[in-house]
Computed example of a mutant assay.
Amino acid sequence: MKSDYLNLLKQRRTIYNLGKNVSQSPDEIIDLVEQVIKESPTAFNGQSTRAVFLFGKNHDRLWKIVEERLKSEVPSEEAYQNTVNKIENSFRAGFGTILFYKDEDVVKGLQEAAPLYADNFPNWSEQTQGNINLGTWITLAENGIGASLQHYNPLIDELVRKEFDIPENWTLRSQMPFGSIEAPAGEKEYMSDEDRFKVFK
C-alpha cells in the first residue's frame, strides 16, 4: 500500500511558534494555495470558497484588529494579557495569514438550482472549507511552512470586512496564520481505535 499522502498528513501539525524566516516569496505561496483551492473537490462543483492573502503590514493589521476586539470579550486583565501575548508571539509573529471565506451567493444559487438538495448546500459548503483548509495546511507543511487554523469569526467579521474591503456576500470561516517553524509541535495524542472505529467484514 502506498503511504505518501499519509506521510504528508502526519507532517501537518498545529504550529504556534511561527516566524518570518520563510524562503518562499509571497507570490510563490499565493500561487501554491490558489492551486490547492482550485483543485479541491466541491459539491456540484460549486466552488464557494474565497481566500484573502495578507502579508506585511496587512498581516499585522489583522492581528491588531483581533487583539483590540478581544479586549471587551476576555474576562480579566490577566487573561487579556495572555491573549495579547499569544497573538503577538504566535500569530502576528508569522509570515502571513490566509482568510478563508464562504461566498453566500454561490450557496444560494445552488439551492435555487437544485431545490431537492437545498438544505444540504450550507453543510456541503462547510465540507468544502474543510477540504481546502486541510489541503492548504498539508501543502504548506510539505514546503516546510508551519501553520495553525484559527476561528475568531464572527467577532472580527465586520471590522475585517471594512479594513480589507471584503464583499458583503462573503462570510469569514477561518484564519490561517503561517510562517517558519520556530519550534515543533508537541506529541500528538490519539483516542483509542476501539472508540473511534467500527469494522464489519
Rank of each mutant, 00 (worst) to 15 (best):
S25M: 05
S25L: 09
P26L: 05
D27Y: 02
E28Q: 14
E28C: 06
I29V: 13
I29E: 07
I29Q: 02
I30Y: 03
I30R: 01
D31H: 09
D31I: 14
L32F: 11
V33G: 03
E34C: 08
E34W: 08
E34T: 11
E34Y: 06
Q35A: 12
Q35H: 11
V36G: 01
I37V: 12
I37P: 03
K38A: 08
K38P: 03
K38W: 04
K38I: 14
E39T: 15
S40Q: 02
P41V: 13
T42S: 09
A43C: 08
A43P: 03
F44W: 12
N45G: 06
N45M: 13
G46W: 02
G46S: 11
G46N: 05
Q47G: 03
Q47R: 00
S48G: 10
T49Y: 05
T49H: 00
T49R: 01
R50V: 04
R50Q: 10
R50M: 03
A51T: 14
A51N: 05
F53Q: 07
F53G: 04
L54H: 02
F55W: 12
F55R: 00
G56A: 11
G56Y: 09
K57V: 13
K57P: 07
N58V: 12
H59P: 06
H59C: 07
H59D: 11
D60A: 08
D60Y: 11
D60L: 13
D60W: 02
L62Q: 07
W63K: 08
K64P: 06
K64Q: 10
K64W: 07
I65G: 07
I65W: 05
V66Y: 00
V66Q: 06
V66A: 12
E67G: 10
E67A: 09
L70T: 15
L70S: 14
K71F: 12
S72M: 09
E73D: 14
E73P: 00
V74R: 00
V74I: 14
P75D: 09
P75F: 08
S76D: 10
S76R: 07
S76L: 00
E77H: 02
E77R: 05
A79V: 12
Y80N: 04
Q81M: 08
N82H: 15
N82E: 15
T83C: 10
V84Y: 02
V84H: 01
K86P: 12
S90Y: 04
S90A: 10
F91D: 15
F91L: 09
R92M: 06
A93Q: 02
A93T: 13
G94S: 09
G94Y: 05
G94D: 11
F95C: 05
F95Q: 00
G96C: 04
T97M: 06
I98S: 02
I98F: 04
I98G: 01
I98W: 03
I98D: 00
L99N: 01
L99K: 01
F100D: 06
K102M: 10
K102Y: 08
D103P: 03
D103Q: 04
D103T: 12
V106K: 08
V106E: 03
V106I: 13
V107P: 00
V107F: 02
K108G: 14
K108N: 09
K108L: 14
L110M: 08
Q111H: 05
Q111M: 04
Q111W: 10
E112C: 05
E112N: 03
E112H: 09
A113R: 13
A114D: 13
A114I: 15
A114L: 14
A114G: 10
A114K: 14
P115W: 03
P115S: 15
L116T: 15
Y117V: 14
Y117P: 05
Y117G: 05
